[in-house]
């Protein structure tokens, strides 16, 4: 089995495609390689958001519980995307459950370590927060469109 250094795994991830190798190198000491099995809970709603995961392969479901309806998947996060963004802002608590669908391979960053690196070197901090903005905007856009309930019959302005 070939074991890739975690720095290479970060560099190969789609989220880091536009950055130079320097940022990946500087953040590598906060990262480790992780694997989750099918159905495994990756994190749970309300617990400390202590990780950022870069999905290398596989898919994870973000779930929440709706009384009377059980658990509902509200989004899936797939290869090349970031899972777990709540570590960016206080109170650093997760909003949803995350569960592996099939085997999920990821790079896991320790959130405290990441924040410390960003605080100590604003250049890294700026570059890294710039990487986090597109997924945040993407999720905001998705949530707004989904809130419109586009596919519901009541969305038809001219019901006949």
């Amino acid at each position: 089995m070939i074991v890739h250094p975690v720095e290479d795994l970060i560099r190969e991830h789609a989220l880091f495609a536009e950055t130079g190798p320097e940022i990946a190198g500087l953040l590598a000491s906060c990262a480790r390689n992780v694997v989750f099995r099918d159905g495994e809970l990756i994190f749970k709603e309300g617990e400390t958001a202590d990780r950022l995961l870069l999905i290398r392969s596989g898919r994870a479901a973000l779930e929440t519980s709706i009384p009377g309806h059980g658990n509902v998947i509200i989004q899936t996060v797939k290869t090349g995307e970031a899972l777990g963004l709540s570590w960016l802002v206080p109170p650093y608590l997760t909003d949803f459950d995350a569960r592996a669908i099939g085997t999920v391979r990821a790079v896991s960053f320790d959130a405290t370590c990441l924040r410390a690196k960003c605080e100590s070197d604003p250049r890294i901090g700026y570059a890294f927060y710039k990487l986090m903005i597109p997924p945040l905007i993407g999720r905001l856009r998705t949530a707004r469109i989904q809130a419109l309930n586009l596919y519901e019959p009541t969305a038809d302005p001219n019901p006949a």
Binding site: A61, G70, V72, T76, G102
Partner: peptide, 21 residues
């Protein structure tokens, strides 16, 4: 789909997220 119950192994999200890949 916009949302699903556990057991659904497909994508959940906007159709434009499918375009990205």
């Amino acid at each position: 789909v916009d949302q699903a119950h556990p057991g659904w192994t497909g994508n959940v999200g906007l159709i434009t997220t499918l375009l990205e890949r």
